[in-house]
Every structure is written in C-alpha cells, then in structure tokens.
Amino acid sequence: MNTTTNPPRPPAPDAAGRTPVLAARDLVKSYGRVEALRGADFELFPGEVLAVIGDNGAGKSTLIKCLSGAAVPDSGTLLLDGAPADFRTPAQAKAAGIETVYQTLAVTPALDIASNLYLGREIRRKGPLGTLLRMLDTAAMRKQAEEHIKRLGIATLQDITQPVETLSGGQRQAVAVARAAAFGSKVVILDEPTAALGVRESGQVAELIKRLRDHGMPIVLISHDMPVVFELADRIHVQRLGRRAAVISPATHSMEDAVAIMTGARTA
C-alpha cells in the first residue's frame, strides 16, 4: 500500500544485481498512539534465508503482519518481484504466493497429515460428486501429500494417514512448514519455528528449513533463538524502534554484535 504522492523507491538489488522477491519501503503502522513501524524497510532476495530479530516492541511482528497481509500499513509500499503489491488480507498474500507459519500452529489435531496439508485447499472429486455433493478426493490428497513430503525429505512423517494429534511438537511443526512450502510459490514466512521444541526436534526443523532453501525457496525466519539464527540465516535483518537498524551476516558479525545492535549499544 503506497499512500504517498511520490513514487516508491525502487527495491535495492543485492551484490549480484538480483531484485528482491519481497520488499518494503518506508512502512508506517500505528495502533492508537503507539507507532509500531516508523519508516521500516525490508528486502528478501531469491533463495535466501533472511532472519528477522529484535527486542520486544521493536516492530518485527508488525512488519511480518504487513508483509503477510495480516495488517495493512498506514503508509509505505510493499513490492513483490519489484512491482507494488497491496495485501489487505492474508488470503490475498497467499494468493500472491506468500505463506506464513505462525508460532501458534494452525493445524487441526483430529485430521490426518494429508488433510492438514490441504486444509482450506481441499481437492474435490471430479464430476457431480465434487461439484454438487462437494465430496473430497481423499486418495488424490494423500497421494500428492506423500509425494510432497518425500520431495522435501521429511523422514519424521512416515504415514500421511496418521492423525496430527498423535504427532510430536516437531512433527506438527514439520506438517505446518510442509503445507506452507506446498503452496508458497514466492515466499515462506516462519514465525518462531523452533519455539517450545526440544534440542532434537529443533534440529529436525532446522534441517527442513535448510532443505527448503536448497529447493530455492526464499524464507523469512523470525526467531529469538540466536544459535538457530546464526546456523540458518544468510543475512540478518535487525529491527529496532520500529525501523531497520541494520542488515548483517553471520559471516561478518557475531551473536554478541547482533545483540548489541538490537539494544542500541552499537551500530553495524
């Protein structure tokens, strides 16, 4: 959404000259007297994992909501593949190829893995059975779900007919991430994907994120877990006081550097 009279600044290319898949320019968002975003910028490039970090109140959650259609900025511009985009709802962002996995997983425990992968996008049977009676093509969903999970190499999900309520926390996260990867043609946004998971399960989710990146999927990773951030991220977006304070790299900065920038103790 661009509410200014001036044309938006073009998205800045990276060192290789690539245009960002998803970008934001000068985003402003207020909730009453609280200014959550104060001219925030953002760029996600093809095939990278971009971590977003920041203290509580830094505006990172609001930034992600604006990128995913869960919130509408008061002013500023969103750009998808370099073209202005206007997401008024999460459904519009999904239709544009942006899938978000929130910390509170939107999975239905009583349904099996395949049904959860196609939740809200169910495949109907062909002909009158699907058109008039709206009967589901369960066999097709299970077949395609199994192929997708094998393609991603998720070894922890062996039986796609297994009810999600019987899965561990890490396996449930894998189902949610697999669903996002199945339908996110442009970007996958992961909100605290390893929160409340044990070391082993966090490692499994981290391996899944690496596989998504290896498949060429651009990923936005919001996390407080600095070891996970420095293990997975190609670049790190540091949000502070409603703006982007810096973009750093695990190759050039330490965890201590990142925390210092987050808190304002130093600049990049």
Rank of each mutant, 00 (worst) to 15 (best):
I113R: 05
L111Y: 13
E122Y: 12
A85D: 11
V107Y: 06
Y102G: 03
T104C: 04
V107F: 00
L111P: 07
L111K: 13
Q92H: 11
R124P: 12
G127V: 03
V107W: 04
R125M: 14
Y102H: 08
L78G: 05
G127K: 04
L117G: 10
L80G: 05
P84M: 05
R88T: 14
L79P: 02
N116R: 04
R121A: 14
G82A: 09
A110V: 11
K126R: 15
P90K: 07
A106Y: 00
R125G: 11
A114C: 03
R121F: 14
D112M: 01
E122K: 08
I123D: 02
T89I: 08
D86S: 15
Y118R: 09
K94T: 08
R125A: 13
G82Y: 14
Y118I: 01
T89R: 08
D81C: 02
A93R: 05
I123P: 08
T108I: 14
L80E: 10
L117Q: 01
A95T: 10
A91D: 11
A83F: 12
G97W: 11
V101T: 03
P84D: 07
L78I: 04
K126F: 09
G120Y: 01
A85H: 12
D86E: 15
A91R: 14
S115M: 10
P90Y: 07
T104E: 15
I98M: 13
L117C: 05
A91P: 00
Y102Q: 00
R88D: 10
V107T: 11
A114Y: 05
Y102I: 02
V101H: 02
F87K: 12
I98R: 07
P90F: 05
Q103V: 06
L119A: 11
A91G: 13
A85K: 10
L111E: 07
A93L: 12
K126Q: 10
G82M: 08
Q103G: 02
L119P: 10
Y102V: 02
R88V: 15
E122F: 06
Y118D: 06
N116E: 03
D81P: 13
S115A: 14
P90A: 02
G97D: 06
L119Y: 13
G82V: 15
Q103W: 01
L117K: 00
P109H: 06
